[in-house]
């Protein structure tokens, strides 16, 4: 039992990072109805920027988080301007946006290679002091607490933004029904740009957290696996649904850890994706998703 609880704790802290990443994915899908395959690359860039901040410049963690948020947020704006907005002007289909996002991802990764090289990097040890807390045979590290805490703060902030601010309601209105949103005076392109800012910022911080969780894993190529897991999370939770994405991310994190513990680590991916296939076929809107009003 303690093993189970321990792995649950591990799974949740891992899953929370997936959740943060997945939220960004799903928000873009909700607003634009496209899958932004540059998001994993943004995660990688975020982790690398954090490396520069933490390692090269030696700033503390809070400042590093703020800096990463800003840097990758701006990157998101650039992404929208270069890759997505021109397609909207031409009324191209969602497939085209998928492909440009892939192109943008390649450009980002290759630019990251120029700046940071191809070798995996590690954050300086001791950003978070090495301490452990135990209760009833279950141990949690300070690092895990910090990660969970960061994710929770960001997620709560996001929720407040979405429900209490003018821009948040505008984003949700556009996601629900872009034409009606226009009739209410919502400027579509600006709202989309801001959404990309927001989601990329979150994706970047997810990268930073990954870098902290897995020592020495920061490289321009680290985004790939997260791309797949992010997609899995949003499929599970329902595409376009923020809460769903979070729960999906947590589920994937916990599931991953549990499968490694109780089944074989090598079949982890097969089981996970097999389940995903079933979810899609049986309930395409995800376990939590609902029919979007736009589709009616």
């Amino acid at each position: 039992m303690t093993v189970f609880l321990q792995q649950l704790v591990n799974g949740i802290s891992l899953g929370s990072v997936y959740a943060l990443f997945a939220v960004g994915f799903t928000l873009v899908f909700g607003v634009l109805e496209i899958v932004n395959l540059a998001h994993p690359a943004v995660l990688a860039v975020g982790a690398l920027v954090a490396y520069t901040l933490l390692s090269t410049l030696g700033v503390g963690l809070p400042l590093a988080i703020a800096g990463t948020l800003l840097a990758t947020g701006l990157l998101g704006l650039a992404l929208d301007a270069a890759a997505f907005r021109p397609l909207r002007a031409r009324r191209a289909g969602p497939l085209a946006s998928l492909i440009t996002s892939i192109g943008a991802a390649l450009i980002l990764v290759s630019a990251a290679q120029r700046v940071w090289g191809t070798e995996p990097l590690g954050y300086p040890p001791g950003i978070v002091p090495l301490r452990f807390f135990s209760a009833g045979g279950v141990t949690i590290s300070l690092l895990q607490i910090v990660i969970l805490g960061t994710v929770m703060v960001l997620v709560v902030a996001l929720r407040l933004l979405m429900t209490r601010t003018r821009v948040g309601i505008a984003i949700r209105a556009v996601a629900e029904n872009p034409e009606t949103a226009s009739l209410l005076g919502v400027p579509f392109n600006r709202v989309v740009a801001f959404t990309l800012f927001l989601t990329s910022a979150l994706g970047g911080v997810a990268g930073l957290l990954v870098g902290m969780l897995f020592q020495g894993s920061v490289s321009p190529f680290m985004g790939d696996t997260y791309g797949l897991k992010g997609l899995a999370a949003i499929i599970l939770g329902g595409m376009g649904d923020i809460t769903g994405a979070m729960l999906g991310g947590l589920a994937i994190g916990v599931g991953e850890v549990m499968i490694v513990q109780y089944l074989s680590s090598s079949y982890r991916d097969a089981v996970a994706f097999g389940l995903l296939f079933l979810v899609l076929v049986i309930r395409p809107t995800g376990l939590l998703g609902q029919q979007r009003s736009r589709e009616a």
Binding site: P94, Y267, F277
Partner: peptide, 30 residues
């Protein structure tokens, strides 16, 4: 994969085929 995926459209179908691909890759790995 085609038969169960029949009821899916657009991006959902793409993701289902993607999931299938990963299952194959994982199987090949193991």
């Amino acid at each position: 994969i085609g038969i169960p995926a029949l009821r899916l459209r657009g991006i959902y179908l793409a993701l289902a085929t993607l999931a299938f691909g990963e299952v194959v890759r994982a199987a090949a790995l193991n």
